[in-house]
């Protein structure tokens, strides 16, 4: 088996004196889609923050493609091909659609290429290229944030709560795009509070609760009983 693309080894992370992650191990293999599940307050978003370099872990190692990346800055990781779509809307509301895409050029791709691929996938964004991103609908905003992942051909994609505040129809459309990205061979770590929406796309699933991994395995093997006990408490 080749070296995994992303590896968290015994990660601990805290906000001030409150520890949120108490030693988490997680592995994303090359071309794999891993779903990170768990109830509110499990530490899912914190884990994404650690993996993307926004939050420095208080202990443990962040290993990317076999190299120790603990303590690397978020912008360096981003330029190296780690694409993160954070919780909420991963867009700049006071910039136009085109300017938002300009910000994606830090990945090393040309603006014209990014625009072309985005507008081909989401024709609606082409109509709105000079509109302030914050004035678009929630679904369109999420398309714009996904466009960055689609156009910049990342090595690994971290997705945090794509479905937040969106209609179910739009969510399933967005997850089709995620499946498309995964089909191109991009490794994906996707956080989702609603387990059912994501298990169809994922290869592996990790269940996080109280800052620790409670269960992991093939996505198809995560049973209702495991989910229920983790979400509702045993």
């Amino acid at each position: 088996m080749s070296t995994p693309i992303l590896e968290l080894r015994n990660i601990r992370a805290s906000y001030g004196s409150i520890e949120v992650l108490h030693g988490v191990n997680l592995t994303v293999g090359r071309g794999e889609v891993v779903a990170l599940l768990g109830p509110n307050g499990a530490g899912k978003s914190t884990l994404i923050k650690v993996a993307s370099g926004i939050l420095r872990p208080s202990a443990g190692q962040l290993v990317i493609a076999g190299r120790d990346a603990t303590g690397a800055s978020a912008n360096a990781l981003a330029r190296a091909g780690l694409c993160t779509i954070p919780e909420g809307r991963g867009i700049f509301p006071n910039l136009t659609v085109r300017e938002n895409l300009l910000m994606a050029t830090y990945s090393g791709h040309k603006l014209s290429d990014i625009e072309q691929s985005t507008y081909a996938r989401f024709p609606r964004l082409a109509e709105r290229r000079s509109q302030l991103a914050g004035t678009m609908s929630g679904g369109e905003q999420q398309m714009l944030s996904l466009a960055r992942a689609l156009a910049t051909d990342p090595v690994i994609l971290l997705l945090d709560e794509l479905s937040m505040g969106l209609a179910p129809l739009i969510v399933s459309e967005l997850y089709q795009q995620v499946a498309a990205i995964a089909a191109e061979g991009v490794s994906v770590l996707v956080v989702e509070q609603f387990a059912r929406t994501v298990l169809g796309v994922a290869d592996q699933a990790v269940l996080l609760a109280h800052g620790k991994v409670q269960a992991f395995g093939k996505a198809s093997e995560i049973g209702e009983d495991v989910l229920a006990s983790a979400y509702l408490g045993s």
Partner: peptide, 10 residues
Amino acid sequence: DDRSLTELNG
């Protein structure tokens, strides 16, 4: 607009 998102963009 969003400092940490700017970082996530590189």
